[in-house]
């Protein structure tokens, strides 16, 4: 909680941080309230007054972003998609950091055999082709967003663990760790009360990367057609458009979801960068 407040405070200081934080906040709000403010159900087929299916209608006041080949409202689908993107992104980022942080702390602090084993595991995971692995996993299990979140978390914690480990290895040599030990601190005390607060900035930076990656990956999975069939996601909207072969005739159908992903992910990157520029004094000095 404290870390979150610090993150917000630091990021808010710079212009780019403020803009990206606002965009991200807006997306978050849309993700929460989107389904309630959506004018139509995303899977409803819409008909015009004459009772004809509204196929590929261009944007109008009734359908802000037009309709799909099946006569569904793109704008409503976009709002539902925001929820999916945020849910998948945030949960994956959280899971990634919780696992990666703990593995990194333990490996870096204890070293020796524990470290060797944990690092071999991350080596193997680093060799694992990310997207293909998730696709294989999804091809063998139920295609729902929880599987997607779990699969992404399973692969993504590797980088966080490595970054944290390297930092912990240098932190544990620091004098304040020895000081804590001489006052009777146990390993758990040292790890979670002395060292962990010092790697939190790194963990926050890696959360932003994980968030960005998770959102893009979820979209890619949706685009390849392996997404949760019961959930609307920005990726699956593009997939529907692509699969219908009509996308070249209906730019209102393909452009918005891509732009949404791009804007959201860009804001995540810039948030992370604004934070990092303050945290990393070397970078700040040179700017």
């Amino acid at each position: 909680m404290n870390t979150l407040m610090t993150f917000l405070r630091i990021t808010w200081k710079s212009t780019s941080g403020r803009i990206s934080l606002s965009i991200f906040g807006a997306c978050l709000v849309l993700a929460v309230i989107g389904p309630w403010i959506a004018p139509y159900s995303p899977s409803d087929r819409l008909y015009d007054d004459a009772g004809k299916l509204l196929r590929l209608s261009p944007p109008t006041w009734d359908n802000l972003l037009g309709t799909t080949v099946l006569g569904r409202d793109v704008f409503s689908q976009m709002l539902w998609g925001a929820r999916t993107a945020m849910l998948v992104g945030l949960l994956t980022a959280l899971g990634t950091v919780v696992i990666g942080l703990n593995f990194g702390l333990i490996a870096g602090y204890f070293g020796g055999r524990i470290d060797a084993i944990l690092m071999r595991i991350t080596d193997i995971l680093l060799g694992l082709p990310f997207l293909p692995f998730i696709i294989v996993l999804l091809s063998l299990t139920d295609r729902n967003i929880w599987t997607i979140i779990l699969a992404m978390t399973f692969v993504m914690w590797r980088s966080t663990a490595r970054i944290v480990r390297a930092e912990v290895m240098s932190l544990r040599q620091r004098q304040f760790v020895a000081s804590a030990r001489t006052t009777g601190a146990s390993d758990v005390d040292i790890l979670y009360r002395e060292i962990a607060p010092n790697v939190m900035p790194l963990a926050v930076t890696s959360i932003t990367f994980a968030l960005a990656w998770a959102i893009i990956t979820e979209a890619s999975i949706g685009f390849l057609g392996f997404g949760d069939p019961n959930v609307f996601s920005w990726g699956s909207i593009i997939y529907d458009a692509y699969a219908s072969q009509m996308m070249y005739r209906a730019p209102w159908w393909v452009v918005p979801p891509g732009v949404a992903i791009m804007v959201l992910v860009t804001s995540v990157y810039f948030m992370g960068r604004a934070y990092e520029e303050v945290i990393n004094p070397r970078l700040q000095e040179r700017m």
Binding site: I216, F223, Y242, V254, G258, M262, V265, T266
Partner: peptide
């Protein structure tokens, strides 16, 4: 970098 590459390709 933030845009999905499949979408860029489609554009």
């Amino acid at each position: 970098q933030s845009a999905p590459v499949f979408w860029l390709s489609m554009l």
